[in-house]
Design a protein around this nucleic acid. Structure first.
Length: 630
RNA sequence: GCCGGAUUAGCACAGCGGUAGUGCAUUCGAUUCGUAAUCGAAAGGUCGUGGGUUCGAUUCCCACAUCCGGCUCCA
């Protein structure tokens, strides 16, 4: 019953599924199974194609650059990469040469064949790789056999190129036509800093030219909404070289947006029973000896400064400070939970190569809070945090990937605690109907946590909100409360951030909105543009009225053409442009142009009431809603 | 921190072994305009910093700083 699917019969076939398992088209059918042909429009086909493109690239590289050793070449979210060990780094100039060689190998339409090695033949294979000067392949094989001595190994061959690989692959190189090599980078062998750095080449591949072009266009579009570019164009912030990397200067417009978000946060925090506190930025380093940060986190802290023979440190975290406030007086079980909140700047020494605009900085402002509670209160407290985060995400229209991170190998604390806390986290997510993945062993050494990860314009992952359970700091600070039994008990501490940090969150929403902030966040909500200077007084009167109604409005009566000023407002992504000419003055009206397009002439009072309706009143707490028009 | 690349006016970019140029922004002048750039002029640069090669370096070489893409890290 062995069935080999003829390539001529299924030109578009890329791979097949046997009982749901992805296999090569050349697979021999040894028992009855449900057979399904995977064609180019199947999402799985793209992965197969990209993996095969990675092989094609490795083939091209080994033929162009003798001595380049192959390692691994997996598929990524939008493409693939392959890591090589070569005595010089590849540069962007090498990529066209490699692409040309790939094109040539594709035109040869080499068969891609698969060879299966039973366990007893693997030692021979290892020797073969060693003899051929491919030590990395030999190492991978050795590790596979050490893990399971009965493993079967497959090797794929196209022309004179062979690679150890699980597959599946496209049946012939001729199917690989629309690809692009994108960048070169260094990457450590097996991801460890201690190992040799390899040369990585990234690329992507599609079945059709149109898909490839669309992808490249998407990358260009994404670059346009890069928060570093928009931050300069919209005059939101700067990071001057003279004042140091990773330290942000917020300009008036950026600071305005940030302060509106902080006002929103404070109102939400108040509703949820958080108490605001303030703690010092610089403290004697004893605090961090007690917290254990000097032992475990010192390489991420700014070095000590000496004042009157005492060492002081800039804080890298707020939890020790909040612990001091908790500890400042005896606590009763009746006081719990205690929720201390601070939108607080901390400073961390992040390694220079990791800094990235607002998204990764050395001076960061956490929307931090620490909840001190009993183990019994933990589920409700965590559910409250998850609900808060969910609410915030809905306000900003953001989506996050949620991870529940469980007990790592190196952990402290009792099993009872880990179990109860992990359970509380899981229950909270399920109660709120939040889909999540488990990050097995990804928790902090002191406790499990929930992490929310966001994606930037080009798909990079950034951690934002987090909820962490921690019995360790209460222990270190000897925190206690008097229980109803009259005895002293230890509270649990929950670390949580709703937005993450203000810096990273701003980066995120700048890219999310592509700089076109919704009305409630827009630094300038409306600009009034007189057509000529005769209308200036009317414009100032209207502006005054609008300011009284809570609008952030400006008059642009610069000596520039109307077109120029419209364009300027459009480029600055100002939501409303209000043009005033003779007609509007006579009618007590405004010619309303929206940045999204559309024009209409409305009485001033109508413009104000429309504006107030457009600010989503459900999203904002009462204290922030615009006041009634006067 | 590691690998590769980059650094020229406020911004975006040309250029080149013989001491710098364009556009926008800025300032000034003209223009008073009906929905995405009015015209003209002026001003603006130790060509990232330091060292070397050279008769001469913005250009070539080295170190450092910063940025970009990755890697690693992100108790």
């Amino acid at each position: 019953l062995a069935a080999q699917i003829s390539r001529s019969l299924a030109k578009k076939a890329v791979a097949a599924r046997l009982d749901g398992k992805l296999v090569d088209l050349s697979t021999r059918l040894e028992a009855p199974a449900k057979v399904e042909i995977v064609t180019a429009d199947d999402p799985a086909a793209l992965e197969v194609l990209r993996h095969s493109t990675a092989h094609l690239m490795a083939h091209a590289v080994t033929s162009l650059y003798p001595g380049a050793k192959i390692t691994i070449g997996p598929v990524t979210a939008d493409g693939f990469y392959y890591d090589f060990d070569y005595d010089r780094g590849f540069t962007m100039e090498d990529l066209p040469k490699i692409e040309a060689e790939m094109k040539r190998l594709s035109q040869e339409n080499l068969d891609v064949t698969r060879a299966l090695y039973a366990a007893d033949r693997v030692p021979g294979l290892i020797r073969k790789f060693e003899e051929e000067g491919e030590p990395y392949k030999a190492e991978i094989l050795t590790d596979i056999m050490n893990a399971d001595a009965t493993s079967e190994i497959t090797v794929y061959t196209q022309g004179d190129f062979s690679d150890l690989c699980r597959g599946p692959h496209v049946p012939a190189t001729g199917l690989i036509k629309n690809f692009k090599l994108l960048s070169v980078a260094g990457a450590y062998w097996r991801g460890s800093e201690k190992n040799k750095m390899l040369q990585r080449i990234y690329g992507t591949s599609y079945f059709t030219e149109a898909d490839l072009k669309a992808h490249l266009t998407r990358l260009e579009e994404a670059a346009k909404r890069d928060h570093r570019k928009l931050g300069r164009e919209l005059d939101l912030f700067s990071i001057p070289e003279v004042t140091g990397p990773g330290l942000i200067f917020w300009h008036p417009r950026g600071a305005l947006i940030r302060s509106v978000i902080e006002d929103w946060l404070r109102a939400e925090l108040k509703k949820r029973g958080y108490q605001p506190v303030y703690t010092p930025h610089v403290v004697k380093e004893t605090l961090f000896e007690v917290s254990g940060h000097l032992g475990n986190y010192a390489e991420n802290m700014f070095p000590a400064m000496v004042i009157e023979e005492e060492n002081y440190r800039v804080k890298p975290m707020n939890c020790p400070g909040h612990s001091m406030i908790y500890k400042s007086r005896p606590r009763s079980y009746r006081d719990l939970p205690v929720r201390l909140q601070e939108i607080a700047s901390v400073y961390r020494y992040e390694r220079s190569g990791t800094l990235h605009g607002l998204a990764r900085v050395r001076g960061l402002t956490m929307d931090d809070a620490h909840i001190f509670c009993t183990l019994e209160q933990l589920p409700d407290e965590i559910a409250g945090c998850v609900e808060f985060i969910q609410h915030a995400m809905s306000i900003f229209g953001l989506e996050a990937k949620v991870y529940l991170s469980t007990k790592p190998e190196k952990a402290i604390g009792s099993d009872e605690f880990w179990e109860a806390a992990t359970d509380a986290l899981r229950t909270a997510l399920e109660r709120k109907g939040m889909p999540y993945d488990i990050d097995e062993g990804g928790g902090a050494f002191y406790g499990p946590k929930i992490d929310f990860k966001f994606y930037d314009a080009i798909g990079r992952e950034w951690q934002g909100p987090t909820v962490q359970c921690d019995p360790n700091l209460p222990e270190r600070f000897d925190l206690a409360y008097h229980g109803s039994d009259g005895k002293e008990h230890r509270p649990i501490m929950v670390h949580r951030a709703i937005l993450g940090t203000m810096e990273r969150f701003m980066a995120l929403i700048i890219e999310h909105y592509a700089g076109a902030f919704p009305l409630w966040l827009a630094p300038t909500q409306a600009v009034i543009i007189p057509i000529n200077s005769e209308n200036d007084d009317y414009c100032y009167d209207v502006a005054e009225k609008m300011k009284e109604a809570g609008m952030r409005v400006e008059v642009d009566n610069r000596n520039e053409s109307l077109n120029y000023r419209i364009r300027e407002a459009q480029v600055q992504k100002i939501p409303y442009m209000l043009v005033v000419g003779k007609k509007e003055v006579e009618e007590g009206a405004l010619a309303v142009r929206r940045r999204t397009g559309g024009q209409e002439v409305l009485p001033v009072a109508d413009v104000i009431s429309r504006f107030q309706q457009e600010i989503d009143t459900k999203a904002l707490p009462p204290s922030m809603q615009p006041s009634e028009a006067k």
